[in-house]
Design a protein around this nucleic acid. Structure first.
Lengths: 125, 125
DNA sequence: TGATAAGTAGGAATAATTACTGTTTATGAG
DNA sequence: CTCATAAACAGTAATTATTCCTACTTATCA
């Protein structure tokens, strides 16, 4: 993978936010630095970065969200405010210990949760 | 929700297969019974059935797959043969016991696993 | 039995993503 | 350092899953 300032800007943007942006979000934000940045370039780079495991993708909703946090963590989506929140805990250990394998070789896990987030829960009170 | 023979046929098809079909799959299969069945009708009915919780959707891949099994079970996708396999175990209990809540109200869980399935593992040997 | 609201077919529209084309640029061998 | 080349870029067209729209049909219930 070759260096390009666009790629660098896209990666550093994703790493710098907590918001799990979509390709559109990334395009709009990085466009402020590279006004000529095209959406195709964003998608191509996102796929490159995914392939090299520098970022991860969250495909639970209609639109794909991207995440610069590549540690073993999981995601929670609030049905009220629609935000995606990182939950940092090693799901792998829990899974390995408690989930039956059924003879399959399980290589990757993804636990996705939905509900009402802390903030929204407190606001309604 | 009103009765229609198209809807009945779509639901009974989904319930009758283990394959987690896509909207296209369902359209092609049910078209054999209703040659005039349109893809729009399939999508409209799938959304209706989802709303009434008669089926569930698996949104992990690019294409949405549908599942007539609405019990507490999870899905495993084989990277080799690309099939989606039901894993019947109550993930809710495991999650409730071992996953930290971080103050959020978690209402639904989805555990998605990928790897090499039993069959493919044995064939390679 | 008839009014009506929900369902259907078929095609047009939408939206996320990918592919294509001609141009620019990072990189490494000489 | 310089230049050949493969990769990246911008801009646009194409693709594809899904939804929307319109006129017609049908299940339901008063």
């Amino acid at each position: 993978m070759r260096f390009s300032s666009q790629r660098e800007a896209i990666l550093s943007y994703i790493r710098g936010v907590q918001s799990h942006p979509t390709a559109q979000d990334i395009h709009e934000s990085v466009k402020k630095i590279f006004p000529s940045l095209s959406l195709g370039t964003v998608y191509r780079n996102l796929n490159q970065l995914l392939e090299h495991q520098l970022i991860t993708a969250i495909k639970q909703d209609e639109i794909v969200h991207y995440d610069g946090n590549i540690s073993d963590h999981q995601h929670f989506r609030c049905k009220n405010c629609d935000s995606i929140i990182d939950l940092e805990f090693p799901v792998k250990d829990i899974i390995l210990e408690h989930v039956p394998r059924f003879g399959h070789e399980i290589q990757a896990y993804e636990l996705y949760m939905t509900g009402i987030c802390k903030n929204c829960k407190n606001e309604t009170k």
